[in-house]
Structures are given as structure tokens and as C-alpha cells.
Design a binder for these strands. Sequence first.
DNA 1: CCATGCATCTTAATTATTTAAGAACCTTTA
DNA 2: TAAAGGTTCTTAAATAATTAAGATGCATGG
Lengths: 331, 331
Amino acid sequence: MGVSTATISNAFNRPDQLSAKLRERILRDAAKLGYHGPNLAARTLRRGESDVIGVILSDSLTYSFSDPVANQLLQGVSDVLVERNKHLLLLSSHVDSSEQRGAESLPDGFILYGTIDQATFERVKRTGKPMVLVDFESDEVASVNIDNEKGAYKIASHALAKGTHEVAVLGLKLIDFDRVCRLTQADLDIEYKEISRSRLKGFTRAAEENGCSFKPDSIWHIPINNTTNAEIAAREALTKIPRPNVLLCMSDVIALTAIRVARELGLSVPKDVTITGFDGIPESERSNPPLSTVCQQSIEKGKLATKMLLDGESREQVVLETKLELRGSTN
Amino acid sequence: MGVSTATISNAFNRPDQLSAKLRERILRDAAKLGYHGPNLAARTLRRGESDVIGVILSDSLTYSFSDPVANQLLQGVSDVLVERNKHLLLLSSHVDSSEQRGAESLPDGFILYGTIDQATFERVKRTGKPMVLVDFESDEVASVNIDNEKGAYKIASHALAKGTHEVAVLGLKLIDFDRVCRLTQADLDIEYKEISRSRLKGFTRAAEENGCSFKPDSIWHIPINNTTNAEIAAREALTKIPRPNVLLCMSDVIALTAIRVARELGLSVPKDVTITGFDGIPESERSNPPLSTVCQQSIEKGKLATKMLLDGESREQVVLETKLELRGSTN
DNA sequence: CCATGCATCTTAATTATTTAAGAACCTTTA
DNA sequence: TAAAGGTTCTTAAATAATTAAGATGCATGG
């Protein structure tokens, strides 16, 4: 009342630009009139900054809540965002891009999680806004990754250390197919840009060094990391003849499901079959037997990526260490 | 090039307003120039619609990812949002409201989950935008709830059906205190608007009907639904003298932790101690023994609330049915 | 041949805010 | 007392879109 919009703006944003008295009065009157600070859309339009950070997920939005690893990552992300007073907008690269209605115009920056398709990647790059990739790499773009090959090698080496082995691999996203299936040599010959292929390399190298090997038809492809898919694969693998006595799984969700299926089939873990995981989700400690796995600090990964995004111009490609956690599911 | 901004806008939003030929050309040229659809902030400012839905959480943002129940709810929410081409903005009522920077001005509507504080509630109401409450009620506002008293009554009645009992309750958010503690009568005399109090009423009624009762000092208050807090409470309760042989827990997370603690203390479930949960999270099926619990369809709850929000002017106060799921942790 | 109608495209107002530049006013000092 | 300087507030442009209303051109029909 009786003051310009500029003064109101200053009352909210630049207290030094007006007298304390007037500022008090404006804030009080604004509250009375039901005005509680600037409209985010208008502020964003004018300033070009929204205080919103977009997280783009390779899988469906739903997945970000259901998958324990995505979950932990997002925990880390939101921890930092809350600290810095930023907001979190969840986007999925899954939706038809024509339907996205330009949502990527809002955020000030992006975290891209997982192997996102080229079209989405290009679209985000063209915004010119800062971005950090997680579990995904590209030249000239900052990223946070783990050494998947090494992690896989470490745990497979442990599992295959003594004795002779019939090995099966329960793999995640090894080919571009949306159902559980075994692989063929042809599948493996086609290049496929997923971290799972690095894990497979680690498994293979460990197997070779321990004088054993596994054929493509002992490798299962699981398209989405959930118990439903994992159960199908685990049941097939554990009833295969000859029955494997080592099951190398590319995620803890898969491995925990495999332990359960093994028990249902009357198999003792690790006596009849050794089972290994990958990720180090909280449940892996509490299973029966507890799961031997490769821990990646997913929460930390989320925190680090978010800090890198907010703190600036880093083009760094970070590779975090994994930690081998040997528990009851191997011996 | 050579066309007005209005025509460009129409090319993206109202294809019937221009010739197909020109539209094609505009879309093609726009793509070449790196323009991929309208800026969300500008569009929102002009249209007053952002296609963004805000979910306001009573607890910290992090909690929305770490807690299985919040998780399932958000799964349901995001399922519907993806279907309808809406975006999801996560907000916490936890953050200092002065720091929120007016983020509630962006969304077209809100889902408020849990018992949110009066100030936040008022702030959202003042936006005049549609809202749906979940696990929370208020006159004149649409909401989705379950009958907590009845659910609690049902499972407690089952647990207390035969024999004599020493009962302990592991309760969630029973008072306004941020550490695990036992209650006093004074605590219970103070009114506290939380769904947990309804659950407590259900437990109490079932106990009375079965000729047993429990004192306030057999009721534990757990401020946040996580394993850390649950473990403290479970350990205290299970080492109390006389040791309880029935443990009524107000969440599955608490109950699953209690089962684990009981085992660590050398107690057999359900022989030495009967343990019940509440919620029906996926893990409750897979524990050892599997948990008897009250299932609430959290995913459905999220879906329903979101549909109510998007589909219109409903002021309905929905109360969903719960389902008793009797498994190995009771007999 | 002019009026009518229709399809197609443009003009200009509007949205809520930020911010540089300028105006108004008061105080100080030579 | 007039210039200088500082504080406090206002003016007006800019941000990127949407949309009602208007303009333009073209075909049709009386």
C-alpha cells in the first residue's frame, strides 16, 4: 500500500535498500494480505534462477522410490539440497520427450542418474545448464562413478578363490531387452553402454584367473532391478543342470532374492551355493545369511554429485572406491 | 524466422490455429536453433499452471526416500503423475518456512503427507490451490486416511486372543519429543493430533476386552520411524522386567527391528514373544518369521490421493480399509 | 463486383518479479 | 547558501511465454 513493487521486492530480497521501519511495515502488511514472498515462476523468469535442481532418472519415476540404490542416492541428493535451500524436481527420461512439456527449462542444474538415452542427454546438454552424471560417463561432463570392473573382480575373486566351480551370473541390464533371459555369444558381441558390462568384465577376469569360466548361457539378463524379475532369473539359474555352486549377482536386490529362492529350493547358502551381491544396501546386512557384497557409498555418491553441481564449474570425473564386505553368503 | 511469437506458441500448443506446413517448418527450425518448447517459468507465469504437483512431507526430505511407507506412497503418487504428464516437486514442511523462498507458489496443487504443522498447513491453504491430505484430516479439505483405531484393534485382538499377557507397545510419534522414551500418564493426558494416538486407542480397547492392560511405562515413544530408534526401544522393551510376551508395534519397520533384536537376545518369535506390525511393507513378508501386520495399501493411497487432486473439486474424506495379514510372528 | 465468411497469421496486452537508473529529500560542509 | 553526498524510494525496462482481438488474404456466392 502506497509503495512501489520495487520496494516490496527489496523488502524481501535486499533489506539494505530500504529503511528497517518501512521493511517491517511491508512484511507485516504483506502477511495480512496473504502475500508470502515472490512468485517462483515470475522470479525465475526474471532472474533466470529457480533454486530448483532436477534429477533425471534413467528408469521410471516409480523406480526412484522402489529401488534401494536409487533411493540412497536420492537421500544423499536431498540431504545436500535441503542444506542449501534448493528444491528437488524429479524427472524421468523414460517419458516420451515430446510430452515432457519443457520441464527441463525450470531447474538451475541437473543430476543425471544411470544410463540415460542419447536424446535426453542431448536435450539437457542444450540447456547449457550445469550437470553432473552419476553411474554414467561422458567426455567433458562432470561425473561420479565407481570402478565397476574392479569391484566385480574383487568379489568374484573371493567367491572363486578355492575349489572348483560351476558359475552362473545374474546380470542387470546386459542387453536391450525388457524380459529376463539368458545371453548368447551374439548378445555379448554387441557393444552396450552400461555399467553392468564392466561388472561382467570383472567377473570374467576373476573367473579366468581362477581357472574357471562361464558360458553366455550361464549369464542371465535382468531388465529391471526388482524382486519379481530377480526371482524368475534366480529360479532358472538354481534349477539349471549342472546346478551352479557360485551365483554372482550384479545387485543386492538380485542376490537377496536369490538367497531366498535358494532356501525355498532347499539349498543351503553358502554350503550348496555361494551367493554374492553388489551395492551394499542396508538389507544386505540383515539377510539370513548376511550377504557378501561390494559396497558403494550410494548416499555419499548422491551428496558428492550434488555438491559438485552446486559448487561450480568442475568438469571432474570422479571415481569412488568400493569396499568389499565379506559376510555369511560366501565362505 | 519471419513469424511472430504468437504463431510459435500456437505451433507448440494449438496446431489447429495454423497450417500444417508452417507448423512443420517452425518446429523444424526451432529444433535447429536449439529451442525445445516453451520455458516453464514463463508459461507458468502467464497461464497460472505449471504442470507441477507438490508433495509436502511432514518429515525431512531424506525421510521420503528412506522410509518404506513414505516410499510406497510416493510410488503411487508418481505412477499417476507420470500417467498424466505432471511433474513432481518434493517439499518438506521441516525446513524453516522463511527459507522456503516461496516454492509453494509454483505447483498447481498439493498432497500433504503426514501430520504437518499448522503454519505450513495455513500457508498452503492460503495459496487457494487444491490439496489432498494423506494420513491427516481437516474439515473442508479432501483427505485419504485409514481407520487406524480399527486396524490397531484388529491386530491387537488377534495377538491377545488366548492366554495371559504382559504387553508392551512400541509406539510412533506419541508425544512431541525427539528421543526414544517411555510414556507417563501425563503424556497421555495431553492431546496430540497424530494417527498413532488412534492406533494406541485400538490397542487399549483390544487389551481391555481381553482382560489385560498396559501401563504408560510399557509404552515406548519413537520419534522417527527408523531402525536406529526402533532398536533402542526394542532393546529396552525386551529386557524390561517383567519381560513382555506381546509386543505391539506401530509400524513394520519397528516390528521387523524388534524381531531381529528378539533373536539377538535369544528369544524365539512367537514362542517367547509375539510381535505385531503395522503398515504391510514388502519386507514384512520376507522376515524370519514373517510378520503379522495390518496392511494398508500405501501405493493405492498415493494413487487415489493424486487422482482426487487432479480430477477435481472433491472435498471427500476417504477412509480406506485395512487388511489383517496373519503370519508367523504371532500364533 | 462487393459482401461474407473462413483460414491464417500478427499485434499488443498481460502475467509477477527484478534491477539499473534516476528522482526526491535530507544532511553535511565549505 | 549552495554544492556534495548519502539515504530512501520510484520509474520503467526486461524476462518468455499466452491469448483475445484484430488484420490480411482468399475463395465463394448473391
